Simulated assay, not measured.
Amino acid sequence: MKPAEIYGHMMIHGVSASRIAREEGVDPSLVTKAIRGERRGPAARRVLRRIAREIGVDPAELGVADEDPPQAAQAGG
Rank of each mutant, 00 (worst) to 15 (best):
V26T: 06
A4I: 13
L62F: 01
P70S: 09
V47G: 11
T32L: 04
V64Q: 01
V64M: 01
I51M: 05
A4V: 12
R45M: 15
L48G: 05
G76P: 05
L62S: 00
A52P: 03
Q74R: 15
L48W: 01
E54V: 13
P42N: 05
D58F: 00
V15G: 05
T32V: 08
D68G: 08
S16V: 12
D66T: 08
E38H: 14
I55C: 11
Y7T: 08
K2H: 13
A4E: 08
I12Y: 04
P69H: 07
P69D: 03
R39S: 04
T32G: 03
D66N: 07
I35R: 05
L48H: 02
A44I: 10
R39L: 10
A72T: 15
K33P: 00
M1I: 12
P70K: 13
A4G: 08
G56A: 12
A34T: 09
A52R: 07
I6N: 02
T32R: 08
E5S: 14
I20R: 00
A72M: 15
Y7D: 02
V47T: 15
I6E: 00
R46F: 13
H9R: 15
V64H: 02
D68L: 15
I51C: 07
A73K: 14
S18G: 08
E67M: 12
G63N: 02
G56Q: 10
R19G: 08
E61W: 06
A75L: 14
M10F: 01
I20T: 01
L30D: 02
G76N: 10
K33V: 04
D58P: 00
A43D: 06
R22P: 03
G41H: 14
L48F: 02
G76A: 12
S18V: 06
E67D: 12
P69A: 11
G14Y: 08
L30N: 02
K2N: 12
A52S: 09
P42C: 06
M11T: 12
E61Q: 10
H13N: 10
A34D: 03
M11Q: 10
D27C: 04
A73H: 13
R50T: 13
R40N: 06
I35M: 03
A34C: 05
S18N: 14
V47E: 02
E61F: 09
I55S: 04
I6F: 03
I6L: 11
A52I: 06
P70H: 09
E23Y: 09
E54C: 07
P42A: 14
S29M: 13
K33H: 07
L30C: 10
G25Y: 14
V15Q: 05
I55T: 03
Y7W: 15
L30E: 01
M1L: 13
G77S: 14
S16F: 06
I51R: 02
M10W: 09
I6M: 06
R22C: 10
R39N: 09
K2M: 05
H9G: 03
A73D: 10
